[in-house]
Simulated assay, not measured.
Amino acid sequence: MYITITPQKLGGNYAQSSADFVGYLEKENEGLNESDKEHFFNQHMEVISAGEVVKEIDENTAKLKKKEPKFYSITVSPSSYELKRLQNSREDLKKYTREVMKDYVSSFHREINGRPIHIRDIKYFAKIEHQRFFKGTDKQIIENQAFATKILQLKNEIRQIERGSLEGSISIRQKEINHLEHQAPHQQNGKRIVQGMSKDGNQSHIHIIVSRKDASNAYSLSPGSKYKASDVKMNGKWVKRGFDRDRFFKEVEKTFDRTFGYQRNFVETYQARKDFIKNPNHYFSALMKLPTNEKALAIKILKERKIPIMPPIPKHKVQLALKGFRQLKKGLKVALESGTIGI
């Protein structure tokens, strides 16, 4: 399970409308029949128009400054193993989203009118997407770039030869292009992976847009708060503040497992990925002590994610350990998304 929480954009002034973001989330519906489209939904409504989402978010921004986000985006991306556990992808993901948002509100160390925050206190809209596309920042695109650059150069030369501005053989260049296409390190269905290509397999995930202000438009609720949980005296009164990210990330995993009867492997847990960074010796020790079947599945999952595997590190080989650890951290970059908040 990979969860990210980001403000509407990073740096500078924030857009005064959510229209661009909502429009982006509508991209998969283009050209589809009405019955095939995925609609926005929330805790109680099944079908909400994009226009209504924009209106509700944009009108719920009282007293927010230009340099403050008007909304936050939560992306919930179940793994391929988790998706296989679902019986009905669309309905199960909606059900799960509604439980995730209960975990979200319970992770705030805040009160409204002297009571804990309730699901009815937030304004959010969610949408399920079924496709993902390779981006320029993906490892596959970056590592294929040298081949892409050479192929583009050869194609330009072919065009120049066709125009008569360059002498040479078109067929030789085309053969070289074909060779490079197959030699690129990252392929999908026999084709070089390029930016914008749709990713194979079940890519279903959830986008959630949640207003910075509560449903009454009176209180600011920021999951980007730097405070985990604390009490502070303001205007002579003690006030609770903070958002517990660790609690949120852990609870959404428990909620999925409880809801769908999922048996989570050690390496799939948020806590394990966190331990990998903060306490690698403990991480590898726990990995190696798993029962045979669980360890075999753990290693299979890590290999599928292209994450190198290393046994517990002898203390007397400190330099070798550091070198290996840096390589492992690089390989785990994508997996660690579930432990980050983009602020």
Rank of each mutant, 00 (worst) to 15 (best):
K9W: 01
A15Q: 04
I313C: 04
S216Q: 14
A19V: 13
K55S: 08
R264E: 13
T340V: 09
R85D: 03
D20S: 07
P223W: 09
Q263P: 06
E38Y: 00
E26V: 00
R247S: 11
N235L: 13
K139Y: 11
T6Y: 08
M1F: 01
P291V: 09
I161T: 09
S220K: 04
Q187C: 07
N33I: 10
E157Q: 15
G31L: 09
K303T: 13
A148I: 15
I151N: 11
E304H: 10
Q145R: 15
K84H: 12
I172G: 05
D92G: 11
N293Q: 08
I141N: 06
S107D: 08
K233S: 01
A229E: 13
K315Q: 09
A286C: 10
A298H: 11
E162M: 07
K295W: 10
Q16I: 14
H39Q: 11
I170L: 01
I301N: 06
D20M: 07
I209D: 03
S107N: 05
Q43V: 06
K66G: 08
K300G: 02
L297C: 04
T61Q: 07
I343C: 13
K67C: 04
I172A: 10
G224F: 07
I161P: 04
E167Q: 12
G224S: 07
A126H: 01
L10G: 10
V232M: 09
K9G: 01
S222L: 09
M1N: 04
K317A: 06
F284C: 03
D138S: 06
S204T: 12
E143C: 01
K191T: 08
R212A: 03
D103S: 13
Y283I: 09
S106F: 05
